[in-house]
Amino acid sequence: MYLVISSYQILLKEIVSEFRTRYALNALIMFVVVTISMVLFSIGTESPSQDILSGTLWIVIFFSAMSGLSRTFVAEEERGTSLTLRLLTSASSVYFGKLFYNLVLILALSMFIAGSYLFIIKEFIVKSYDIFWLTIFLGSVGLASASTILAAIIAKANTKGTLFPVLAFPILLPLLLTAINATRLATEGAFFVEALQEFQILISFIIVMITASIMLFDYVWKD
């Protein structure tokens, strides 16, 4: 019960703090607007395949996540509040609080990106919306689960900004490839059962990442 209460308090603190400081939010929104505009301009009058458009959607989601999700731990280190947090609650509470915050942030971001992408890129046509939105949801959860532990690791490093996408890319590659494939199936109008294998991979990825993170986080958090 204590774990739930303290994790919830950290989540709440992160949300209020983000709305007051706009540490990640403004940069993220600008990033999304710029990247979707660039995709739109580069397409021009061409008609790229659904494979390519599915790939570019996840490129936008991946890099937006990379620019925002690391902030949760980096901000604590930069502001010198990580010691305060260590003195207030257990490592598990901090991990789950930050994980849920990243989850809220990436889910909102992915929904916004996917909605804007569907609206702006007319060539991107989704035929199976159930597969599409479930892929966006599971892909976002996967991104949050991997990014949270990576953010905790890189927050201790000197080169925080550049290290995050470099470290995250090999870990997130299986997730991204599977998500791109599932998105392609959604554009082809596949039946839900045809995408089950992709969903199984995404769910397995999430379970493995969260389990490994719970085991690792104590060591990362306490130096």
């Binding site: 308090q9 502001r79 010691l83 207030l88 609650t89």
Partner: peptide
Amino acid sequence: PYLNMYEEFSAEENLIFIKRIRG
């Protein structure tokens, strides 16, 4: 000296956060 409070919150909000997180 290595410990900082959350600067975007007021003193009261910081202490209430501590109260709640400590249960």
